[in-house]
Amino acid sequence: MTDIMSREIQLVSRPNGMPTAANFAIATTKLEPLQEGQVLVRNLYMSVDPYMRGRMSDRKSYVPPFALGKPLDGGAVGEVIESHAKEFKQGDVVISSLGWREYFIAAPKALHLVSPDIQPLSVYLGALGMTGMTAWAGLNLVEVKDGDVIFISGAAGAVGSIAGQLAKLRGCRVIGTAGSAEKVKFLQEECGFDIAFNYKTAPIIEQLNQAVPDGIDVYFDNVGGETLEAALSVLRTYGRIIACGGISGYNEESPQAGPSNLFNMITKRLTMKGLIVSDFLDLQDKFEQEVGSYFRDGKLKNKETVVVGIDQAVSAFIGLFAGKNIGKMVVKLD
C-alpha cells in the first residue's frame, strides 16, 4: 500500500445553538500501513443527519458525544481498495459508520457488504440505509396497519418521506407536513401522500383539523414542539405516537416547554414509544429484504439532495436545520 493522505472533518468546538462553520475544521491525515485482518476503504458517499447535532454537545445520551479534534462519525458507502481480511476483497461495496473522511482502515466487523447492482449506491444511506430502517422500524414499533390514519411531521425529510411511502404500502391514509410548496408537491405527487400541507402558511392545529376532522390513529414525530402538541389534540382514543426526533429543538440553548395538552396522554389512553434505530440492527437483513424488494420493484422512491466534495459536508449538515434538503441529504466525495 502506498502512502495515502485522507481529508477528514473534525469537530473543534462545541456549538452553542445553531452550529457554524467555525465549529469544524478540515484536516489531512496520513493512513498507517495496512495490517493483517484490516481493510482499506475509500468513501464514495457520506451521510449528514440531524441526530448528529446531539452528539456535538458534551452531555450524556444514548451514544457518546463526538470528541474534539477527532473526525466525526456518520453513515458512509465506500469501496474496498485493499483487503488483508478474508471477509472482503478489492472492489467490494460496503457501508459503515466511518463517514466524514475520504479513506479509512477498519476491521471487518465495522463493515457491512452490500450489492453494487443497486444504483445509485447512495441509496444505502437513504431508503435502504439507516434512515429507511428508522422509518420501517418506527412503523413496526407501534404496529401500523391497514386502515390507520397516520400523520407524519418533517415528512419531506429522509425518514418522513420513506415512512409515508411504507405506510401507504400498508394501506394507510397518510398526512404530512413540510416547509415549502415544493416539498408539499413532492409529498403528494412523488410519495403518494393523501394530504400534505405547509406548516408555515397557517397554524398546524387548524390545518390538521381541516385535513382530518375525525382525527388520526398514529403520529410519526420527527419535529416535536408545536407539531407534537397539535398531534396530541387530534389523536383518537388509543392512538399511538412514534417518538423519532425533535428537530425543532435540537439547537435550542435551553429546553423547550413541554406540550400544554400532555394530559391527553391520560384521557385518550395514548401510547408513545421512543425510537432508536440501533435497537433494531438484528433485523437489518429482514429490513433489507422487505424494503429492498419495494425499491427494486419501483414501489418505493429514494429522493436525495446531493452536494459534492467533503469540503461541502459542513454546509450540507447545517443546511438540514434550514430545510434545504428534500429527502436524504448526502455528500458525494470527489
Rank of each mutant, 00 (worst) to 15 (best):
R53S: 02
R53M: 09
G54N: 15
G54T: 01
S57Q: 14
S57A: 13
D58Y: 09
R59S: 08
K60Y: 11
K60A: 07
S61L: 03
S61D: 14
Y62S: 03
P65D: 07
P65C: 06
P65K: 02
A67C: 00
A67W: 04
P71A: 10
L72A: 10
G74S: 05
G75F: 14
A76R: 14
V77A: 07
V77G: 08
G78W: 02
E79P: 14
V80D: 08
V80P: 14
I81Y: 03
E82C: 05
E82V: 11
S83Y: 06
S83F: 10
A85Q: 04
K86G: 09
K86L: 08
E87T: 05
F88N: 02
F88Q: 06
K89I: 12
K89L: 08
K89A: 03
G91E: 09
D92N: 11
V94P: 02
I95M: 08
I95D: 05
S96R: 06
S97C: 03
G99Q: 03
G99V: 09
R101D: 01
F104G: 06
F104V: 07
I105H: 08
I105W: 13
A106F: 13
A107L: 15
A110F: 11
A110E: 14
L111M: 05
H112Q: 12
S115C: 06
P116L: 00
I118P: 00
I118R: 04
Q119T: 09
Q119D: 01
P120G: 03
L121Y: 00
S122N: 09
Y124D: 03
L125F: 01
A127E: 03
A127M: 03
L128K: 02
G129H: 07
T131D: 12
T134R: 04
A135E: 01
W136M: 05
A137Q: 10
N140I: 00
V142S: 01
E143F: 01
E143S: 14
V144L: 11
K145L: 06
G147L: 15
D148P: 04
D148V: 10
D148N: 14
V149H: 07
I150S: 10
I150C: 13
F151L: 15
I152A: 14
S153L: 06
S153I: 12
A155D: 02
A158W: 07
A158F: 06
